[in-house]
Every structure is written in structure tokens, then in C-alpha cells.
Amino acid sequence: MSKKATGVIVVVAIILLWEAVSLSGVVNNSLFPAPSQVAAAGWQLLLSGVVKDIAVSMSRLLVGLIVGTVIGIAIGLLTGRSKTAAGILSPIIQLLRPLPPVAIIPLIIVWFGIGNGAKVFSIAFAVFFPVWINTHIGSKMIPKIYIWTGRLLTKSWFKKATKVIFPASLPFIVVGVRSGIALAFIMVFVSELAGASIGLGYRISIAHLAYRIDEMIFALALLAILGALTDYLFSVAVRRIFPWLKFKTI
């Protein structure tokens, strides 16, 4: 049997087992709803407009992701290639980096309130650090000879930055952005637990607060699927835009 088929069969078996256990009365069905109940709750959610919540959450996430990534790359390339910039910026970045981004959300609410801006900021803040450090390391590790060749062939610093330094750092940057995506999903969820009136995280939270575990599981599954999808689409996009990455040279 092919690997894929085995995988599918295992997943189906688990779902069937779950259904049986939930409905058997062995466990509290309200706290451990069956897949069929989760699906029914999901259907209700879809009818009641959870697509809007998804759209809002995803737009917050994407904006935060892009902002955090762009700033992370820009500063990472700067600190990676310039000792002066590194001397000024790296210490403060390294001081802030160990802060669990989730833990600063209450602070962000106090300082910036509960609007979309605050949520996007908390996502961007979290995304910045893995992108920055990977870009920083990647741009530091560029083989000297690439830089020298660039210097010999062009005087334009812009060309050197965009046609040598950025692509040479790209394998590392990609790793950083993928970490950023995972963090962004965590942050959008957590930032919507408090001070939100719409969003997938908000939906998960109020389902929980109303003891609707079936809704909660469905919404969580949605979140997980969106996360996996985003990561997948990112990988595909990267390979499209930078086809040479598939050779994984450097």
C-alpha cells in the first residue's frame, strides 16, 4: 500500500475511534464532542458568518506579517553587513528578543488600545525577531568572494544590496519568515482573545466561554488549516519567484 493511502487510513481510523468514544458515554460528551457534532457546529458557524471572522483575522495577520518581515529583513541586512549598525541596533534588539510576544499583549493593550492597529502591531512585533535574526546571520555569512565580485563589477550600492546581499541571504530569510508565519498565527489568535469583537480567535474565545467545545474545536481546526495553508502557499510562492532556491546552493 502506498504511504499516502496508509496515512489517510490512519486518520480516518482515528476519527472513527473518536466518534465512537465521544458518543459512548464513557467521557463527558459536552467536553469531548464527537467529530459529527463538531462538523454540525462548524456548519452553524459557517452559516452565521464565520467567513467574515476568518477574513478579518487573516487580513490582520497578513498585514502584521508583511510589516514585520519587511522591517526584519531591512534591519537584518543592515546589522549583518554594517558593524556600526550592528553596534547600535543589535543590543536593543537582543534585549527585546527573549520577551515572549504573547506576554506583552496586555502591555500593548494598555499602550495602544484594542483597535486593529494594536493587533497588527503585536503580530508584526512577534514576526520581526525570527526574520531579523535569520537575515542578520544570513547576510553575515555571505562568502567574501560574492561581495568582492560585486564590488569589482558595480559601483551602485543599491545594485549590491538588491542583487548580491539580498539574494545571498535569501535561504536564511526564508527560514526566518516561515518561523514568523507560525508566530503570526499564534499572535493573531492571542490578540483576539482580549479586546476583540470579530475574528477567528475571538470566535474560539467566546465559544469556549459559552462551553461550546464543539464550536471551539471546529474553529481551532480552521485556524490550524489556515496556518498550514499559509505556510504551503508561502513555500510555493518563494519557489516561483526565486526558482534558483530549489537548487539550495550557497
Partner: peptide, 25 residues
Amino acid sequence: IGVIFQQYAVYPWLTVAENIEFGLN
């Protein structure tokens, strides 16, 4: 001057034609 090194001679992220074109701005 032109310099040829032993390794990392050309940029992996550019095609052959793009590499040749690199210094011609």
C-alpha cells in the same frame, strides 16, 4: 580589472546570461 576566483565564481541566483550581464550597468 577583472578577477576570477577558484570558488563562488558566479552568482547562484542569476542565470548564465544574467551573470554575464551583471557588470554592464
